[in-house]
Simulated assay, not measured.
Amino acid sequence: MASRAFGRITVTTPDLDEPGLYLSVVESLASPRGTMQDFAYGDVELRSLALTGIQLITGRVRDVRAKHVEFDALNLHGVEITSSDLGSARWSRSRLTRVHFRDCKLMGAAMDGLVLDDVLFEKCRFDYAGFEKVRATGPAAFVGCAFTEAVFTDCDLSGAVFSDCGLRLTEFGGGRYRDTDLRGNDLSRIRGVANLAKVRIEPGQQTDLAQALVNELGITIGDG
């Protein structure tokens, strides 16, 4: 099994090139049996991609572009998703285990009730996305991702890592962020500073958080 270390955590990622593993090319991710395993899917442009009650196990999704995306109870295990544009996806009630997203766009997506365990998001765009009741029950890392005006609501991101991410006007609403690792990010324009109790930062980021709080409270500094 492959793994990547980020700060204090290690994320186990899919190893889809291991000897003896053969991925069959499929034309659709839908399965009448409810399970798709050992698959390769991609290089498609779709008007709509809707999957409900499906398990995707050990597979690669690449270069998928879809305008309308609806995922419900779509559980992933050992899956790699790369260079894909899933638009403003609606994704709910799903569990992701040993999943690696790379160079993907989920701008304006609504992620509700997702459970993350050994999940790596790398160089993905989540601008204007909403995360609600998303829970990191195992290692989870966001590396080099953009979260412009994204909103986290009632999430449990305890122990998760954000590294080298764009957090401009990203709002951290009420939730649990104990030991969430925010080192290596510009925090000066985030929102919801008061909700970030027990997070982990590095020397110098205190100034970022102070600036973010001043911005959020609309405080005017000066003699005029």
Score class of each variant (00 low, 15 high):
Ser3Arg: 12
Ser3Pro: 00
Gly7Gln: 02
Thr10Pro: 08
Thr10Lys: 14
Val11Gly: 07
Thr12Tyr: 08
Thr12Ala: 10
Leu16Gly: 06
Leu16Arg: 02
Leu21Ser: 08
Tyr22Ile: 13
Val25Glu: 14
Val26Glu: 09
Val26Thr: 11
Ser28Thr: 15
Ser31Cys: 05
Gln37Trp: 04
Gln37Glu: 14
Phe39Ser: 10
Gly42Ser: 06
Gly42Leu: 05
Leu46Val: 04
Leu46Gly: 07
Arg47Leu: 10
Ser48Thr: 14
Leu49Gly: 03
Gln55Ile: 13
Leu56Arg: 11
Gly59Cys: 05
Arg60Asp: 03
Asp63Gln: 15
Arg65Leu: 04
Ala66Val: 11
Val69Cys: 09
Glu70Met: 07
Leu76Ala: 03
His77Pro: 00
Ile81Met: 14
Ser83Ile: 02
Ser83Cys: 13
Ala89Val: 14
Arg90Pro: 01
Arg90Thr: 13
Arg95Met: 09
Leu96Gly: 08
Thr97Phe: 07
Arg98Val: 11
Val99Asp: 07
Phe101Gly: 04
Arg102Asp: 15
Asp103Lys: 13
Asp103Arg: 15
Cys104Ala: 14
Leu106Val: 09
Ala109Lys: 10
Ala110Asn: 13
Leu116Tyr: 04
Asp118Leu: 02
Val119Thr: 09
Cys124Trp: 14
Arg125Ala: 14
Ala129Thr: 15
Phe131His: 04
Glu132Cys: 01
Glu132Val: 00
Arg135Cys: 05
Ala136Gly: 03
Gly144Ile: 12
Cys145Asp: 14
Cys145Glu: 03
Ala146Thr: 08
Ala146Leu: 10
Glu149Asp: 10
Ala150Ser: 12
Val151Ser: 01
Thr153Ile: 01
Cys155Lys: 00
Cys155Trp: 01
Leu157Ser: 03
Ala160Gly: 07
Asp164Tyr: 11
Cys165Pro: 05
Gly166Ser: 11
Leu167Met: 10
Arg168Met: 08
Glu171Asp: 09
Gly174Ser: 04
Gly174Pro: 01
Arg176Gln: 06
Arg178Trp: 11
Asp179Ala: 13
Asp181Asn: 10
Asn185Tyr: 08
Asn185His: 07
Asn185Val: 06
Leu187Ser: 03
Leu187Met: 07
Ile190Ala: 07
Arg191Cys: 03
Gly192Val: 11
Lys198Ile: 03
Gln205Lys: 07
Thr207Lys: 09
Ala210Arg: 12
Ala210Asp: 13
Ala210Ser: 10
Gln211His: 08
Gln211Val: 10
Val214Met: 14
Glu216Lys: 12
Ile219Gly: 11
Asp223Tyr: 14
Asp223Ala: 14
